[in-house]
Structures are given as C-alpha cells and as structure tokens.
Amino acid sequence: MPHAMSLDEVLMILALCSYGVGAVVLVLYFFTREDWLRNFGAALAVAGCVAQFAQLGARYAETNVWPLLNLYGSLSLFTAMSVAIFIGFAFRYRLWFAGGFLLAIAALFLAYGVTWNEGVMPAVPSLQSYWAKIHVPLVVSAYGAFLVSFVFSVLYLVRYYAERRFAATGQGGDVVASWFATMPSLAQLDILVYRAVAIGLPLLTLGVITGAAWAREAWGAYWQWDPKETAALASWILYAAYMHLHTRNAWRGLRSSWWSVLGFVSIIFCYLGVNIWISGLHSYKV
C-alpha cells in the first residue's frame, strides 16, 4: 500500500517547490528587471514561507513533539526565518532582485534538512524543557538573519569587484552600469548588511542567554564549554568585532562585507559542523 503523505510532508514539498521555482524566477528578474517576474517570485517566496510555518505547526499538531529538536525541524525554521526576514527587507528596501540567490540557498538548506527527517521521535530528557520553545527559535532565527546578511555581503562583493573589473578594462561597462543602476549602491548594500546583522546579533545574544539559562537547569552550569556553546561564542565575537569595525570609515564596505562572509561561515560551522562532526552536549542529530 502506498505511503499516504502527511500534511507536514505535503507542506514541506510545497515550500520546497515554491523556493525552487521562486529562485529561478527571481534570478531571471535579477537579469531582466521585468516587473511581472518580481511579482511572481515575491508571491512564491511568501507562499513558500507561509507553507513552512504551516508545516512546522502541522508537525507539532500531528505529533505533539516540538518540531525544532532535530536538524530537520531546525533547518526548516532556519530557512523559513531567513526567507521571512528577507521578505521584510525586500518590501522595505525594494530588494527582490536579491531574492533569487536567497531562495536558492534556502531551498538547498531545506532539501538538506529533509534528508535528516527520520520521522517523529519524542524528546530526550534534556530537551524536555520549556526553554526548547524559546532558545531554539531565537538561535535559529539569528542564523536566518545572518544568512540574509551573507547574501547582501556577497552582492556587495560581486558589485564591488565587477565595477572595478569593468572600470579597469573599459569593456561592457555600459551594460553592467545600467544593470547595476537598478541595484542599491555599494554604500546602501553595506548598510543592508549592517541592518541584517543588527537583527541577527541581538537574537544570537538572546539565544545564548536563554541557552545559558537552560543549561543551568539541565546540565548544572550556565556555561559548559561545550563545542556548540564555544562555536556560538566564536560567532558572537566575530559579529561583535563586525559591529566595532563598522564604526570605522575605513572598514565599512569591502572589509566589513568580507568580515560578514567570514561570520556566516562561522555560523554554518556552529550550526551544522558542530552538530554533525563534533560530539558534545548538543549532539541531537535526528
């Protein structure tokens, strides 16, 4: 008998398809600046994001197990939050041109998360805490904001190096210049990176604080020097350094964009690398 899909699985497929198609549509918009492509892509992004939150809700309703306690659930929230934060930025600052890249990354992370779906498992004792409903969403949302800052940083770097290259060769400059004219300026992109970090860093701080409060209840001390904690501390230090560097004129723009890219690498290491490769108190893979 064929396996009947649950509502959770249906919504997950819907979200994946929305992001996949949305990524293609918005990448086309990036190159063509056709309004209908932007509108269609934006609708897909919103639909995918709504489907994801509905999927998490449906999974919780179906199983009565908090859905963020494994990589499948947390990656789902990570992509949903990154898309939600991006949608906020896109509406406020007219940034749909960047949506294709973000949706493509979100789709990849989501598809990877699906490979970790082992079905429904009750929580182990240390995860049976109200803190799970506070700490995990905060930290994962912070990661989502940092993904958005990463996308803006990459766009900054692409634009910066493309402008330098075409300025140097003098070829293709008109086409590229007219294309870049529809994008925010380098200074504006730099500010967008800063604004995304301004969402991520307080969330990460709050996530670490709530994690410490939880650790004090579960493990006996608010700080255990567990690999996950220390990796999160390293990421926090990197972004705190970013904040400080951004106060300096000489460090705004190119250098701080590279710094933001480095920060996101540390986030991915903290989020996935530590979970998968390094054993510790946070080793909850399935």
Partner: peptide, 19 residues
C-alpha cells in the same frame, strides 16, 4: 578600535581551536 578588534579576533580564534 582596530587593536581591540584584533584582540577580539584572537579570542575568537582561540575559542575555535577549543571547538
């Protein structure tokens, strides 16, 4: 500030070594 950030970076690197 750049000196302070260098110290932060050093702290971050040592933290990562421990990870």
């Amino acid at each position: 500030i750049p000196f302070g950030v260098s110290l932060l970076a050093l702290w971050g690197v040592l933290t990562l070594i421990g990870v």
